[in-house]
């Protein structure tokens, strides 16, 4: 080991003991009795496959919406005056420090049939009957995007900040339009931030639990709910471990795939 690696040792040991070891033990659980039966059940039964599919579908949608909302916000925060940027940070970070449960309940108040949004819409005469925003897929999407948005905004903010302001200035000086500057300079140079943010949001989405349960009205089922049921209610830990392992492997696979597509050019 080179001397440069020594300072990293405590963190590596920490990961080994508190992350790698439990993961390996969990994998051991899933193969209890030396059979792949639990994997066969996880991948063979329609119920579990559908819930896996649901989970990835929701995670993908949440990532896309976070990107659509988060990119302009991160971009703005990185390019505006320090005062506005601070304000932006407060708005982005404050929710991050609030309990997920509290935020989820706040959305229930806002999105309900007699919630703030529906009352505003009806008073404005835009609709006569309340729009179903809660206890369905829409509610889950709104709640999750809100909870996860900071994880998208911050990496994008960082990426935009790292761009030398002379580059877009030069492009503008040479007569490039705003759109062209964005597509040819900002976007390629912030791809890393987009990638980092998307991976964070996607991976965090996969494990979501309380938000879908409360805002989805029970209709939106994600794999974490089923794993929790197996751990706490059914006490079938081998099966819970197998479900978790499938989720883990699928997540790695998607991560690897995304990395291939995101940065073919850079070598750091």
């Amino acid at each position: 080991m080179t001397t440069r690696a020594w300072p990293a040792l405590p963190a590596l040991i920490l990961l080994l003991v508190f992350f790698l070891f439990p993961v390996v033990r969990m994998l051991g659980f899933s193969l209890e009795g030396g059979t792949f039966d639990w994997y066969a059940k996880a991948l063979g039964e329609g119920l579990y496959l559908r819930v896996f599919w649901n989970t990835f579908e929701i995670a993908l949608l949440v990532t896309v919406f976070c990107l659509l909302l988060g990119y302009p916000l991160g971009f703005l925060m990185a390019t505006t005056t320090p005062g506005w940027a601070t304000l932006g940070f407060i708005f982005v970070l404050l929710p991050l420090w609030t309990s997920v449960l509290v935020r989820t309940y706040a959305w229930m108040v806002l999105l309900g049939r007699n919630g703030v949004f529906n009352r505003l819409l009806m008073e404005a005469g835009l609709t006569t009957d309340p729009i179903p925003l809660l206890h369905n897929f829409t509610g889950v999407l709104i709640g999750m995007v809100h909870v996860l948005l900071p994880y998208m905004v911050l990496p994008i903010y960082g990426a935009v900040r790292r761009i030398d302001p002379a580059i877009p200035a030069a492009a503008a000086g040479l007569g490039a339009s705003g759109g062209r500057i964005f597509w040819r300079i900002y976007l390629p140079l912030t791809l890393n931030g987009i990638f980092a943010g998307s991976v964070l949001v996607f991976v965090l989405s996969l494990g979501f639990f309380i938000t879908p349960a409360l805002l989805g009205g029970g209709r939106v089922m994600m794999i974490a709910v089923l794993i929790e049921q197996q751990v706490r209610e059914a006490l079938n830990w081998p099966f819970a471990a197998a479900l978790s392992a499938v989720l883990l492997v699928a997540t790695f696979a998607i991560y690897a795939l995304a990395q291939r597509f995101s940065q073919p050019e850079t070598t750091r």
Binding site: L47, V51, R219, M221, L226, E233, A234, N236
Partner: peptide, 14 residues
């Protein structure tokens, strides 16, 4: 029968 009931319930909800 709790485990069986839970599985059938989940499938029914989906």
């Amino acid at each position: 029968n709790g485990t069986k009931a839970a599985e059938l319930w989940n499938a029914w909800m989906l």
